[in-house]
Design a protein around this nucleic acid. Structure first.
Lengths: 201, 201
DNA sequence: CTCCAAACAGACAGGTCTGTCTATTTCGGA
DNA sequence: TCCGAAATAGACAGACCTGTCTGTTTGGAG
């Protein structure tokens, strides 16, 4: 059900529902789940925000869990795009790595920042759930990027440095969220710089 | 209500209820809230685990929120004791700082580690709630310790270094939890060492 | 022994949650 | 114009949630 194109994804050009119920549900879920946590937000609030009937939600997604999965998938794809776009503006592995923290700084500076969606959803989800698996995938992707760049930079132990950079990223996201401290990503970037300068010697 | 000594805190030496209902409730809450998150665990599960009547819970604590507050307070006091004890075994500010990460490594290596209780509860709690305030207090205490030690170490900007160390601690706790990676605190300690060695030059 | 506070069991209220179901409306394409 | 898919409103079931209340039992202090 979650792969149904739902009539016309492109604009119907005239009256009728501007966007499909599926897209409105995803937009509402993205706001509500991210702002309040997936467990605290009920189906009723989502469909009310989306202006959609409950049956439509279950026709489109089949369950709340599947809606959460799709919400996180969208977040993941958008983060990947943001990070890749930033990285592409730089040449050296070192600058590409640091650009990830600039990307985080930009995101965390937004007034309605509520931390890393994958940290929060992963912590709320049960250990073996499919939601947790999606969070794990996104986390592994970012860590993999760091590790790959560390390898390209020619450091002696790319896996170790990749893990450290991912750890710093985690800490910055958490601190920016819980302490409402938008300077955290900048502090994390400074730590990363020290790690990189030390490594290159 | 939450400060009532409840009959006899010390062992009644004979039959009867070994420990007070209050203490059994706190022990049950400590396990269940920490393992599953404060929002996912209902009152009924707590009283069932504690072997206590529901009325006793509301006599002792008045509300679930107050029980959560007391649960977090206990966690905070125990963490403070652990960290202080570790730090006391070392002389230099540098070694005291690193000992905090050793303490975290020990905690995170336990099989039922579920991350930092204050990170998780703080993320689940609403922005202005009293639960969030307790989490903020514990986080501020740790950050303050780092900053104070950085000051004693004579670094040029103790606040900045204190924040960076707290950030690394956050990242290590998160990564150890979500990725089930018990090596994270060790990696964080290595980052801290680099920060400290660089600073001292 | 008597009294009182603590703890007990358990029903109950009122709300929210996920998910199902019925019956109706809307709209594009054949 | 007519059919079928998509969407609609809204009732409903069954479970769980927090919190209140009634009435009973227990055990130690005076």
């Amino acid at each position: 059900m979650n792969t149904t194109p739902t009539r016309t994804a492109v604009a119907p050009a005239s009256h009728g529902p501007r966007v499909s119920a599926r897209d409105r549900l995803l937009a509402a879920a993205d706001e509500l789940f991210y702002e309040n946590g997936v467990n605290l937000v009920g189906i009723d609030r989502v469909i009310e925000r989306a202006g959609v009937a409950k049956a439509s939600l279950y026709d489109c997604f089949g369950s709340k869990e599947e809606l959460i999965r799709c919400y996180l998938q969208g977040r993941g794809e958008r983060r990947q795009a943001r990070v890749r776009e930033r990285m592409a503006q730089f040449q050296t592995p070192r600058d590409k790595i640091l650009s990830v923290f600039d990307s985080l700084a930009e995101t965390a500076a937004r007034p309605n920042y509520h931390g890393c969606a994958f940290q929060r959803a992963g912590a709320e989800a049960g250990a073996g759930s499919s939601v947790k698996r999606i969070c794990d995938d996104s986390r592994a992707w970012l860590r993999g990027q760091f590790t790959e760049l560390a390898r390209e930079a020619g450091v002696p132990d790319p896996q170790a440095l990749g893990g450290q950079l991912a750890l710093i990223y985690d800490g910055a996201a958490m601190m920016a969220y819980l302490d409402e401290d938008p300077s955290a990503p900048g502090a994390a970037r400074a730590v990363a710089e020290q790690l990189l300068s030390q490594m290159s010697k």
